[in-house]
Write a protein that binds this DNA or RNA. Structure first.
Ligand SMILES: [Zn+2]
Ligand SMILES: [Zn+2]
Ligand SMILES: [Zn+2]
Ligand SMILES: [Zn+2]
Lengths: 146, 146
DNA sequence: TTTAAATTGATACATAGTCTCATTCAGAGT
DNA sequence: ACTCTGAATGAGACTATGTATCAATTTAAA
């Protein structure tokens, strides 16, 4: 996926060691990573990279719609998700914080509509549903049984 | 909108002064508030309410899909948005952090589909598009003009 | 009104993210 | 390959956001 490196370059940003390290960590992670996860991973990949640069890079990747922060479970710190192809979709269980991803969204049409109507240029999107997963519904049902 | 109070009650939570104060502040705010905004507002509405309870209530409202934290601009702190009717949709400009809301989403069908296929029970959703607003496209165009 | 469990406020604390600035580095031009 | 310049970085002090603890209070049901 050196696709991401390409996009940094095209947008006029230098391919520095810090940025390459952060990208590598995020790409190899499976889905949802916190900044702490990225800091830990980067410390292994390239210990010379500093704390501030990791945060700067996460911000940059967010501005480029390569990555998107989202709050899961406790609101302490965001999780970063890759937006491969510009989008990502998941369901968050509000009871156990489990995340279930899904592929289809059918949002292309509304995206085009919004671009025309509002004169915006859209580069990505995130769709999140909230609710209870199958397990947590069962638990609630059991608790209400008396 | 004492709808929200009703929902707290139904879910088995007490209608305490802290919770009522937080709800009042969020309902009267126009769209996107940070925890700092809520803390300030609550200090005016009911100065006896403590810092911790504000955070506890924001967490609770999030778990009930009454409110949803989202990441806008800097990574410092989340913005909380109301999910009236269970959903909210906006576009975030990745250049100037402006937020543009829009009403329609057409996601009812996919919600039903997911509930059936994954046996989840969905209570709300958030749809975010990322890109550049009209103004920021203009700026970029000007910068590239030489 | 009584009561028990839920919730709270105060405050000390942990930690996530920011700022500053001298130094380094990426990459374009030669 | 060598030079040069602005972009980017690392160190680390610093700010502020959110958390944990626990005795005291309050809600709401009986
Ligand atoms: Zn669950
Ligand atoms: Zn999509
Ligand atoms: Zn803009
Ligand atoms: Zn919707």
């Amino acid at each position: 996926m050196s696709d991401h490196r390409e996009r940094l370059k095209l947008a006029g940003y230098k391919l520095t060691k810090a940025r390459l390290a952060v990208l590598q960590v995020i790409e190899h992670a499976d889905g949802h990573v916190t900044s702490a996860d990225v800091l830990d991973g980067v410390a292994l990949v390239d210990p010379a990279v500093g704390r501030a640069s990791v945060f700067r890079t996460l911000d940059l990747l967010t501005r480029l719609s390569i990555v998107r922060p989202t709050y899961i479970g406790t609101s302490a710190t965001p999780y970063y998700v890759l937006l491969p192809g510009g989008h990502h979709h998941h369901i968050i269980c509000t009871v156990c914080s489990r995340v279930i991803e899904f592929a289809e969204c059918g949002l292309e049409n509304i995206a085009i509509l919004l671009e025309e109507r509002l004169k915006v240029k859209l580069t990505g999107h995130l769709l999140e549903f909230y609710g209870q997963c199958a397990d947590c519904q069962d638990k609630i049902a059991v608790n209400n049984e008396d």
